[in-house]
Design a protein around this nucleic acid. Sequence first.
DNA 1: GCGGGAATCAAACAAGTGTTTGATTGAATC
DNA 2: GATTCAATCAAACACTTGTTTGATTCCCGC
Lengths: 209, 209
Amino acid sequence: MLDDTKRRLLNTAGQIFADKGFEAASIREICQQAEANIAAVHYHFGDKKQLYVATVRLAQCAQSDEIPFPELPADMPAAQRLRTFVGTMFERMLSADRPKWHLQLMLRELSYPTEACEAIVHDYIRPMADSLRTILAELLPGDMPEPERWQVGFSIVGQVLFYYVHQPIIRLLIGDEAYRNLTVDTLADHVTRFSLAALGQRMPQEVAS
Amino acid sequence: MLDDTKRRLLNTAGQIFADKGFEAASIREICQQAEANIAAVHYHFGDKKQLYVATVRLAQCAQSDEIPFPELPADMPAAQRLRTFVGTMFERMLSADRPKWHLQLMLRELSYPTEACEAIVHDYIRPMADSLRTILAELLPGDMPEPERWQVGFSIVGQVLFYYVHQPIIRLLIGDEAYRNLTVDTLADHVTRFSLAALGQRMPQEVAS
DNA sequence: GCGGGAATCAAACAAGTGTTTGATTGAATC
DNA sequence: GATTCAATCAAACACTTGTTTGATTCCCGC
């Protein structure tokens, strides 16, 4: 392979950056684990910071590609589309069979933003927000002012993200065993039912597992 | 004052730790900003790590003292107690007149836990969780199984924490001006109303501002 | 077979890290 | 006034950091 070391560097760097953060990750550790020379990062990327933004960019693309957001046909009931939306978010977050550092790195960047944050919001978050707001347009009264519509969206997304960002809290609170029982479907069903009820809607039977 | 430098060290260290994280914060920067000698941290705390856990412990205590959780009298309607609970959380998070590094440091520790995390969960989170679960006991059907009760609690707390943890996203999504319009009361009202509706309850009029 | 450019390598760079030392201060105690 | 002990200080410690250099290897096109 041509740029094999460059690819190896990107992947292991992303893993370590996601795990420890930018400052705590050292180039030597990255290169050693990637079986590359220390000078390779300078040669291929310029410096540490450029390597970092490259990993963020990679994570962003990969994350979108691996579990693409399903097309939500306009004739599908809004409640069911909401269930699909929430389910896809949980899928992206908790699905264990893919490299987990992609989302991990992105969420770290979103919580403690550097210069790479804006790109994520623009390319990754914004489309999701638009998709959710389209769904909500059918579930909310037409005269609801814009700020309130945003808050409803935040209430839904906040529920989902909580399970990812605060895994340590949840584990310590309910115990490891109960945590393992939290499946993607269970959580997606709960959040969807909870949110639909908050909007005065019922959970459609055909999607409630 | 006797231990003035020790106190100064704790406060500026906590600020910097909260801002940059443990690894990225340097002892020299802390000491310079605290107007203390570099050896002072070794003298008063032992090493950098012990200084860090001391700041976390301080943040934890201060955070509880400054905005103590109000006693929720048992004869107050559960819906109103929920509004108070949510309001206090927002108060702790967004009230601008207190040093903000306390909660900032605690939430950083909760998202990326070190050894100090368990103590926070045990001494700070657990009591809050118990308080919320007591309120929910009156709002939820008595035969609801334990895991679902937890999920309802997470749905409520998740909504609240979202506004703190993901401030950067919110700002970029809705714009700076709209963000400034989000007051503690507005948000607490929304989250409470949303959650109560999800549980089939109405927002009590006397607390809806 | 041979030049030439891309890629890799060991080695060293200067700067910054946490930590430690040993001397110096200052105020309270006898 | 002498002693004592906690607190502070400048200086150096050994080590790691990101970065750079210059030589070496590798492989492709001529």
